[in-house]
Design a protein around this nucleic acid. Structure first.
Lengths: 190, 190
DNA sequence: CTAGTAATTGAACAGTGGTTAATAAAGAGG
DNA sequence: CCTCTTTATTAACCACTGTTCAATTACTAG
Protein backbone atom coordinates (compact mmCIF):
# COMPACT_ATOMS: atom_id res chain seq x y z
CA UNK A 1 0.00 0.00 0.00
CA UNK A 2 1.88 3.07 -1.16
CA UNK A 3 0.79 6.18 0.67
CA UNK A 4 2.51 8.65 -1.55
CA UNK A 5 3.37 8.82 -5.26
CA UNK A 6 6.71 9.78 -6.76
CA UNK A 7 7.33 13.52 -6.96
CA UNK A 8 6.91 13.75 -10.71
CA UNK A 9 3.47 12.26 -10.38
CA UNK A 10 2.25 14.45 -7.61
CA UNK A 11 -1.13 16.07 -7.63
CA UNK A 12 -1.55 19.81 -8.11
CA UNK A 13 -4.45 22.26 -8.10
CA UNK A 14 -4.19 22.57 -11.87
CA UNK A 15 -4.35 18.84 -12.48
CA UNK A 16 -7.32 18.46 -10.19
CA UNK A 17 -9.11 21.41 -11.76
CA UNK A 18 -8.59 19.98 -15.18
CA UNK A 19 -10.12 16.64 -14.29
CA UNK A 20 -12.87 18.30 -12.32
CA UNK A 21 -13.71 20.57 -15.23
CA UNK A 22 -14.30 17.62 -17.53
CA UNK A 23 -16.56 15.93 -15.05
CA UNK A 24 -18.50 19.06 -14.14
CA UNK A 25 -19.09 19.78 -17.79
CA UNK A 26 -20.18 16.24 -18.43
CA UNK A 27 -22.46 15.75 -15.46
CA UNK A 28 -23.03 19.06 -13.71
CA UNK A 29 -21.96 20.17 -10.28
CA UNK A 30 -24.35 18.10 -8.24
CA UNK A 31 -23.67 14.86 -10.03
CA UNK A 32 -19.93 14.92 -9.65
CA UNK A 33 -18.45 13.59 -6.45
CA UNK A 34 -15.03 14.14 -5.01
CA UNK A 35 -14.57 10.40 -5.25
CA UNK A 36 -15.23 10.49 -8.97
CA UNK A 37 -12.73 13.26 -9.54
CA UNK A 38 -10.14 11.35 -7.57
CA UNK A 39 -10.89 8.13 -9.42
CA UNK A 40 -10.44 9.87 -12.76
CA UNK A 41 -6.99 10.95 -11.63
CA UNK A 42 -6.06 7.62 -10.13
CA UNK A 43 -5.87 9.11 -6.65
CA UNK A 44 -7.88 8.65 -3.52
CA UNK A 45 -10.58 11.18 -2.73
CA UNK A 46 -8.83 12.30 0.43
CA UNK A 47 -5.93 13.64 -1.60
CA UNK A 48 -8.07 16.36 -3.12
CA UNK A 49 -8.79 17.75 0.31
CA UNK A 50 -5.13 18.44 0.68
CA UNK A 51 -5.30 20.87 -2.25
CA UNK A 52 -8.81 22.26 -1.84
CA UNK A 53 -10.62 22.78 1.40
CA UNK A 54 -13.89 21.46 -0.03
CA UNK A 55 -15.91 20.83 -3.14
CA UNK A 56 -17.31 24.35 -3.34
CA UNK A 57 -13.88 25.91 -3.29
CA UNK A 58 -12.75 23.65 -6.08
CA UNK A 59 -15.81 24.53 -8.11
CA UNK A 60 -15.59 28.28 -7.64
CA UNK A 61 -11.95 28.24 -8.54
CA UNK A 62 -13.06 26.83 -11.86
CA UNK A 63 -15.94 29.24 -12.32
CA UNK A 64 -13.72 32.24 -11.76
CA UNK A 65 -11.27 31.11 -14.35
CA UNK A 66 -14.06 30.56 -16.84
CA UNK A 67 -15.66 33.93 -16.36
CA UNK A 68 -12.48 35.54 -17.51
CA UNK A 69 -12.30 33.01 -20.31
CA UNK A 70 -15.60 34.27 -21.69
CA UNK A 71 -14.51 37.89 -21.43
CA UNK A 72 -11.26 37.01 -23.12
CA UNK A 73 -13.00 35.07 -25.85
CA UNK A 74 -15.23 38.05 -26.62
CA UNK A 75 -12.24 40.33 -26.67
CA UNK A 76 -10.34 38.13 -29.08
CA UNK A 77 -13.24 38.15 -31.44
CA UNK A 78 -13.43 41.91 -31.34
CA UNK A 79 -9.74 42.21 -32.13
CA UNK A 80 -9.88 39.93 -35.14
CA UNK A 81 -9.37 41.57 -38.51
CA UNK A 82 -12.70 40.69 -40.07
CA UNK A 83 -15.78 42.42 -41.42
CA UNK A 84 -18.25 43.48 -38.77
CA UNK A 85 -20.89 41.03 -39.89
CA UNK A 86 -18.45 38.15 -39.61
CA UNK A 87 -17.35 39.30 -36.21
CA UNK A 88 -20.93 39.47 -35.07
CA UNK A 89 -21.61 35.95 -36.23
CA UNK A 90 -18.48 34.76 -34.48
CA UNK A 91 -19.61 36.38 -31.29
CA UNK A 92 -23.02 34.75 -31.50
CA UNK A 93 -21.58 31.32 -32.19
CA UNK A 94 -18.79 31.86 -29.72
CA UNK A 95 -21.25 32.62 -26.99
CA UNK A 96 -23.15 29.41 -27.68
CA UNK A 97 -19.94 27.43 -27.89
CA UNK A 98 -18.83 28.74 -24.57
CA UNK A 99 -22.15 27.90 -22.95
CA UNK A 100 -22.19 24.36 -24.22
CA UNK A 101 -18.54 23.67 -23.58
CA UNK A 102 -18.71 24.85 -19.98
CA UNK A 103 -22.26 23.88 -19.23
CA UNK A 104 -21.98 23.61 -15.53
CA UNK A 105 -20.40 27.02 -15.29
CA UNK A 106 -22.95 28.54 -17.57
CA UNK A 107 -25.63 27.22 -15.29
CA UNK A 108 -24.05 28.90 -12.33
CA UNK A 109 -23.54 32.16 -14.21
CA UNK A 110 -26.98 32.53 -15.70
CA UNK A 111 -29.38 29.85 -14.55
CA UNK A 112 -28.92 29.52 -10.84
CA UNK A 113 -31.71 31.19 -8.95
CA UNK A 114 -30.63 30.17 -5.51
CA UNK A 115 -30.23 33.46 -3.72
CA UNK A 116 -27.34 32.44 -1.53
CA UNK A 117 -25.33 31.28 -4.49
CA UNK A 118 -26.26 34.44 -6.38
CA UNK A 119 -24.86 36.68 -3.67
CA UNK A 120 -21.57 34.90 -4.03
CA UNK A 121 -21.07 36.51 -7.43
CA UNK A 122 -23.11 39.50 -8.44
CA UNK A 123 -20.72 41.53 -10.55
CA UNK A 124 -19.53 38.86 -12.94
CA UNK A 125 -22.62 38.43 -15.12
CA UNK A 126 -23.33 42.16 -15.25
CA UNK A 127 -19.87 43.08 -16.36
CA UNK A 128 -19.79 40.36 -18.96
CA UNK A 129 -23.18 41.35 -20.33
CA UNK A 130 -22.23 45.02 -20.55
CA UNK A 131 -19.20 44.36 -22.69
CA UNK A 132 -21.19 41.88 -24.75
CA UNK A 133 -23.90 44.47 -25.35
CA UNK A 134 -21.52 47.25 -26.29
CA UNK A 135 -19.70 45.00 -28.73
CA UNK A 136 -22.96 44.04 -30.43
CA UNK A 137 -23.96 47.66 -30.62
CA UNK A 138 -20.64 48.63 -32.11
CA UNK A 139 -20.65 45.96 -34.79
CA UNK A 140 -24.24 46.24 -35.84
CA UNK A 141 -25.06 47.75 -39.18
CA UNK A 142 -28.33 49.15 -37.88
CA UNK A 143 -28.54 51.24 -34.76
CA UNK A 144 -29.92 48.86 -32.16
CA UNK A 145 -32.04 49.72 -29.17
CA UNK A 146 -31.30 48.31 -25.75
CA UNK A 147 -34.27 46.00 -26.20
CA UNK A 148 -32.95 44.74 -29.52
CA UNK A 149 -29.71 43.71 -27.92
CA UNK A 150 -31.54 42.22 -25.03
CA UNK A 151 -33.60 40.10 -27.42
CA UNK A 152 -30.47 38.90 -29.10
CA UNK A 153 -29.03 37.90 -25.78
CA UNK A 154 -32.17 36.04 -24.80
CA UNK A 155 -32.29 34.22 -28.11
CA UNK A 156 -28.72 33.05 -27.54
CA UNK A 157 -29.46 32.26 -23.96
CA UNK A 158 -32.43 30.16 -25.03
CA UNK A 159 -30.29 28.15 -27.38
CA UNK A 160 -27.70 27.40 -24.75
CA UNK A 161 -30.25 26.73 -22.06
CA UNK A 162 -32.18 24.30 -24.14
CA UNK A 163 -29.20 22.18 -25.05
CA UNK A 164 -27.55 22.19 -21.68
CA UNK A 165 -27.93 18.73 -20.28
CA UNK A 166 -29.18 17.32 -23.55
CA UNK A 167 -25.92 17.46 -25.35
CA UNK A 168 -22.35 16.68 -24.45
CA UNK A 169 -20.57 19.42 -26.36
CA UNK A 170 -20.84 22.18 -28.90
CA UNK A 171 -19.99 20.13 -31.97
CA UNK A 172 -23.23 18.22 -31.75
CA UNK A 173 -25.19 21.38 -32.47
CA UNK A 174 -22.80 23.41 -34.56
CA UNK A 175 -25.07 23.46 -37.60
CA UNK A 176 -28.10 24.55 -35.64
CA UNK A 177 -26.01 27.18 -33.87
CA UNK A 178 -24.81 28.62 -37.15
CA UNK A 179 -28.30 28.82 -38.45
CA UNK A 180 -29.44 30.50 -35.28
CA UNK A 181 -26.64 33.03 -35.56
CA UNK A 182 -27.55 33.74 -39.15
CA UNK A 183 -31.10 34.58 -38.15
CA UNK A 184 -29.89 36.84 -35.40
CA UNK A 185 -27.79 38.71 -37.92
CA UNK A 186 -31.01 39.67 -39.66
CA UNK A 187 -31.92 41.76 -36.65
CA UNK A 188 -28.72 43.76 -37.04
CA UNK A 189 -29.16 44.50 -40.75
CA UNK A 190 -30.85 47.54 -42.24
CA UNK B 1 -49.42 5.88 16.81
CA UNK B 2 -52.17 6.10 14.23
CA UNK B 3 -51.49 4.02 11.17
CA UNK B 4 -54.26 5.51 9.14
CA UNK B 5 -55.87 8.96 8.98
CA UNK B 6 -59.57 9.70 8.90
CA UNK B 7 -61.15 9.29 5.49
CA UNK B 8 -61.68 13.00 4.90
CA UNK B 9 -57.99 13.59 5.47
CA UNK B 10 -56.76 10.87 3.23
CA UNK B 11 -54.02 11.43 0.76
CA UNK B 12 -54.73 11.57 -2.96
CA UNK B 13 -52.67 11.84 -6.09
CA UNK B 14 -53.81 15.44 -6.53
CA UNK B 15 -52.80 16.50 -3.05
CA UNK B 16 -49.41 14.88 -3.40
CA UNK B 17 -48.89 16.41 -6.82
CA UNK B 18 -49.69 19.86 -5.55
CA UNK B 19 -47.17 19.68 -2.74
CA UNK B 20 -44.61 18.04 -4.98
CA UNK B 21 -44.97 20.75 -7.60
CA UNK B 22 -44.08 23.47 -5.14
CA UNK B 23 -41.03 21.63 -3.95
CA UNK B 24 -39.81 20.59 -7.36
CA UNK B 25 -40.06 24.16 -8.54
CA UNK B 26 -38.32 25.52 -5.50
CA UNK B 27 -35.44 23.08 -5.38
CA UNK B 28 -35.38 21.07 -8.58
CA UNK B 29 -36.04 17.42 -9.10
CA UNK B 30 -32.85 16.02 -7.67
CA UNK B 31 -32.99 18.08 -4.53
CA UNK B 32 -36.46 17.09 -3.52
CA UNK B 33 -36.81 13.85 -1.61
CA UNK B 34 -39.89 11.76 -1.11
CA UNK B 35 -39.42 12.37 2.58
CA UNK B 36 -39.60 16.13 2.07
CA UNK B 37 -42.81 15.87 0.08
CA UNK B 38 -44.32 13.68 2.74
CA UNK B 39 -43.19 16.02 5.49
CA UNK B 40 -44.80 18.99 3.76
CA UNK B 41 -48.07 17.07 3.77
CA UNK B 42 -47.70 15.77 7.30
CA UNK B 43 -47.50 12.16 6.15
CA UNK B 44 -44.80 9.56 6.19
CA UNK B 45 -42.79 9.00 3.07
CA UNK B 46 -44.05 5.46 2.69
CA UNK B 47 -47.57 6.73 2.07
CA UNK B 48 -46.58 8.33 -1.21
CA UNK B 49 -45.53 4.98 -2.54
CA UNK B 50 -49.08 3.80 -2.13
CA UNK B 51 -50.21 6.41 -4.67
CA UNK B 52 -47.20 6.56 -6.97
CA UNK B 53 -44.89 3.70 -7.79
CA UNK B 54 -41.81 5.90 -7.55
CA UNK B 55 -40.43 9.40 -7.67
CA UNK B 56 -40.16 9.51 -11.44
CA UNK B 57 -43.78 8.53 -11.93
CA UNK B 58 -44.92 11.25 -9.59
CA UNK B 59 -42.90 13.77 -11.48
CA UNK B 60 -44.09 12.50 -14.82
CA UNK B 61 -47.72 12.85 -13.77
CA UNK B 62 -47.07 16.53 -13.04
CA UNK B 63 -45.47 17.17 -16.37
CA UNK B 64 -48.27 15.56 -18.34
CA UNK B 65 -50.91 17.78 -16.84
CA UNK B 66 -48.90 20.87 -17.63
CA UNK B 67 -48.35 20.01 -21.24
CA UNK B 68 -52.03 19.61 -21.92
CA UNK B 69 -52.60 23.08 -20.48
CA UNK B 70 -50.18 24.56 -22.96
CA UNK B 71 -51.65 22.57 -25.84
CA UNK B 72 -55.07 23.92 -25.04
CA UNK B 73 -53.85 27.50 -24.98
CA UNK B 74 -52.20 27.16 -28.39
CA UNK B 75 -55.33 25.65 -29.84
CA UNK B 76 -57.45 28.52 -28.61
CA UNK B 77 -55.18 30.98 -30.35
CA UNK B 78 -55.33 29.13 -33.61
CA UNK B 79 -59.10 29.16 -33.56
CA UNK B 80 -59.32 32.93 -33.19
CA UNK B 81 -60.58 34.89 -36.18
CA UNK B 82 -57.58 37.12 -36.87
CA UNK B 83 -55.00 37.82 -39.59
CA UNK B 84 -52.13 35.39 -39.70
CA UNK B 85 -49.53 37.88 -38.60
CA UNK B 86 -51.61 38.82 -35.61
CA UNK B 87 -52.15 35.20 -34.72
CA UNK B 88 -48.44 34.58 -34.93
CA UNK B 89 -47.69 37.44 -32.63
CA UNK B 90 -50.34 36.23 -30.25
CA UNK B 91 -48.79 32.79 -30.22
CA UNK B 92 -45.37 34.20 -29.49
CA UNK B 93 -46.62 36.40 -26.71
CA UNK B 94 -48.98 33.71 -25.52
CA UNK B 95 -46.14 31.28 -25.17
CA UNK B 96 -44.20 33.73 -23.06
CA UNK B 97 -47.27 34.57 -21.04
CA UNK B 98 -47.87 30.92 -20.32
CA UNK B 99 -44.29 30.44 -19.22
CA UNK B 100 -44.30 33.43 -16.90
CA UNK B 101 -47.79 32.92 -15.56
CA UNK B 102 -47.21 29.27 -14.75
CA UNK B 103 -43.55 29.51 -13.96
CA UNK B 104 -43.54 26.43 -11.85
CA UNK B 105 -45.14 24.43 -14.61
CA UNK B 106 -42.79 25.75 -17.22
CA UNK B 107 -39.74 24.88 -15.23
CA UNK B 108 -40.92 21.38 -14.74
CA UNK B 109 -41.79 21.03 -18.40
CA UNK B 110 -38.67 22.40 -20.03
CA UNK B 111 -35.94 22.95 -17.55
CA UNK B 112 -35.50 19.57 -15.97
CA UNK B 113 -32.43 17.77 -17.23
CA UNK B 114 -32.45 14.66 -15.12
CA UNK B 115 -32.03 11.62 -17.34
CA UNK B 116 -34.29 9.38 -15.33
CA UNK B 117 -37.13 11.82 -15.73
CA UNK B 118 -36.51 12.55 -19.38
CA UNK B 119 -36.76 8.90 -20.25
CA UNK B 120 -40.12 8.83 -18.58
CA UNK B 121 -41.50 11.62 -20.75
CA UNK B 122 -40.61 11.85 -24.37
CA UNK B 123 -44.02 12.14 -25.96
CA UNK B 124 -45.41 15.21 -24.16
CA UNK B 125 -42.80 17.76 -25.22
CA UNK B 126 -42.56 16.27 -28.69
CA UNK B 127 -46.27 16.43 -29.34
CA UNK B 128 -46.61 19.95 -28.00
CA UNK B 129 -43.67 21.14 -30.01
CA UNK B 130 -44.97 19.50 -33.18
CA UNK B 131 -48.28 21.30 -33.04
CA UNK B 132 -46.52 24.52 -32.13
CA UNK B 133 -44.22 24.11 -35.11
CA UNK B 134 -46.97 23.28 -37.58
CA UNK B 135 -49.00 26.27 -36.44
CA UNK B 136 -46.03 28.57 -36.95
CA UNK B 137 -45.38 27.08 -40.33
CA UNK B 138 -48.99 27.48 -41.36
CA UNK B 139 -49.21 31.11 -40.30
CA UNK B 140 -45.88 32.26 -41.63
CA UNK B 141 -45.76 34.45 -44.70
CA UNK B 142 -42.42 32.98 -45.75
CA UNK B 143 -41.87 29.25 -46.08
CA UNK B 144 -39.88 28.36 -42.97
CA UNK B 145 -37.36 25.58 -42.59
CA UNK B 146 -37.42 23.25 -39.62
CA UNK B 147 -34.40 25.08 -38.28
CA UNK B 148 -36.11 28.46 -38.61
CA UNK B 149 -38.95 27.30 -36.43
CA UNK B 150 -36.55 25.75 -33.99
CA UNK B 151 -34.75 29.06 -33.65
CA UNK B 152 -38.00 30.82 -32.98
CA UNK B 153 -38.79 28.36 -30.27
CA UNK B 154 -35.40 28.77 -28.65
CA UNK B 155 -35.66 32.53 -28.75
CA UNK B 156 -38.97 32.32 -26.92
CA UNK B 157 -37.59 29.76 -24.53
CA UNK B 158 -34.69 32.03 -23.74
CA UNK B 159 -37.01 34.88 -22.88
CA UNK B 160 -39.08 32.79 -20.54
CA UNK B 161 -36.10 31.08 -18.99
CA UNK B 162 -34.35 34.29 -18.22
CA UNK B 163 -37.27 35.91 -16.46
CA UNK B 164 -38.44 32.91 -14.52
CA UNK B 165 -37.61 33.53 -10.91
CA UNK B 166 -36.72 37.17 -11.52
CA UNK B 167 -40.23 38.29 -12.15
CA UNK B 168 -43.58 37.68 -10.52
CA UNK B 169 -45.86 37.61 -13.53
CA UNK B 170 -46.19 38.34 -17.22
CA UNK B 171 -47.35 41.94 -16.93
CA UNK B 172 -43.98 43.04 -15.65
CA UNK B 173 -42.37 42.19 -18.95
CA UNK B 174 -45.20 42.68 -21.41
CA UNK B 175 -43.40 45.46 -23.26
CA UNK B 176 -40.20 43.52 -23.62
CA UNK B 177 -42.19 40.46 -24.67
CA UNK B 178 -43.99 42.39 -27.36
CA UNK B 179 -40.75 43.73 -28.68
CA UNK B 180 -39.28 40.26 -28.70
CA UNK B 181 -42.31 38.92 -30.57
CA UNK B 182 -42.04 41.72 -33.09
CA UNK B 183 -38.46 40.80 -33.83
CA UNK B 184 -39.42 37.16 -34.24
CA UNK B 185 -42.07 38.18 -36.74
CA UNK B 186 -39.26 39.51 -38.92
CA UNK B 187 -38.07 35.95 -39.39
CA UNK B 188 -41.45 34.98 -40.78
CA UNK B 189 -41.72 37.83 -43.30
CA UNK B 190 -40.54 37.74 -46.90
C1' DC C 1 -70.14 -7.90 14.91
C1' DT C 2 -66.79 -9.50 11.96
C1' DA C 3 -63.89 -10.38 8.13
C1' DG C 4 -61.66 -8.06 4.51
C1' DT C 5 -59.69 -4.17 2.24
C1' DA C 6 -57.52 0.27 1.87
C1' DA C 7 -54.39 3.49 3.66
C1' DT C 8 -50.56 4.68 6.57
C1' DT C 9 -46.59 3.99 9.37
C1' DG C 10 -41.79 3.34 10.56
C1' DA C 11 -38.05 0.36 10.51
C1' DA C 12 -34.73 -1.52 7.52
C1' DC C 13 -31.78 -1.98 3.31
C1' DA C 14 -28.39 -0.64 0.28
C1' DG C 15 -26.54 3.11 -1.60
C1' DT C 16 -24.15 7.79 -2.10
C1' DG C 17 -22.20 11.98 -0.58
C1' DG C 18 -18.76 15.34 1.73
C1' DT C 19 -15.58 15.60 5.14
C1' DT C 20 -12.15 14.31 8.80
C1' DA C 21 -8.34 12.08 10.98
C1' DA C 22 -5.06 8.67 11.99
C1' DT C 23 -1.52 6.59 9.41
C1' DA C 24 2.11 5.74 6.16
C1' DA C 25 5.46 6.74 2.79
C1' DA C 26 8.55 9.92 -0.12
C1' DG C 27 11.82 13.33 -0.33
C1' DA C 28 14.74 17.17 1.87
C1' DG C 29 18.11 18.90 5.10
C1' DG C 30 21.29 18.22 8.44
C1' DC D 1 21.34 7.79 9.14
C1' DC D 2 17.83 10.30 11.28
C1' DT D 3 14.33 13.69 11.62
C1' DC D 4 10.89 16.80 9.59
C1' DT D 5 7.74 18.17 6.33
C1' DT D 6 4.85 17.21 2.49
C1' DT D 7 1.74 14.37 0.30
C1' DA D 8 -1.49 10.43 -0.19
C1' DT D 9 -4.19 6.53 1.62
C1' DT D 10 -7.80 4.49 4.07
C1' DA D 11 -11.25 3.78 7.29
C1' DA D 12 -14.71 5.95 9.52
C1' DC D 13 -18.55 9.27 10.46
C1' DC D 14 -22.74 11.31 9.51
C1' DA D 15 -26.39 12.82 6.84
C1' DC D 16 -28.71 11.85 3.37
C1' DT D 17 -31.28 9.12 -0.67
C1' DG D 18 -35.14 5.90 -3.06
C1' DT D 19 -37.42 1.94 -2.14
C1' DT D 20 -39.56 -2.12 0.19
C1' DC D 21 -42.36 -4.31 3.52
C1' DA D 22 -44.42 -6.20 7.74
C1' DA D 23 -47.30 -4.29 10.99
C1' DT D 24 -51.10 -1.46 12.25
C1' DT D 25 -55.18 0.95 12.00
C1' DA D 26 -59.80 3.06 9.73
C1' DC D 27 -63.26 2.02 7.32
C1' DT D 28 -66.79 -0.95 4.81
C1' DA D 29 -69.57 -4.80 3.11
C1' DG D 30 -71.96 -8.62 4.61
Amino acid sequence: MSARKAVDKELSREIIMSAARDLFVEKGYQHVSMRQIAAKLGYSHGAIYYHFTNKAELFFALVESHFSMLDQKLEEMMDADLPNTTKLKHIFIGYIEFGLTHQSHYEIMFLVKDKEVRNFMNEGPMKTYQTFASHISELSEKRLSIRDIWSIFMALHGFVTHYIGHVVGFEEVRQAAEHHAELLLLWTKK
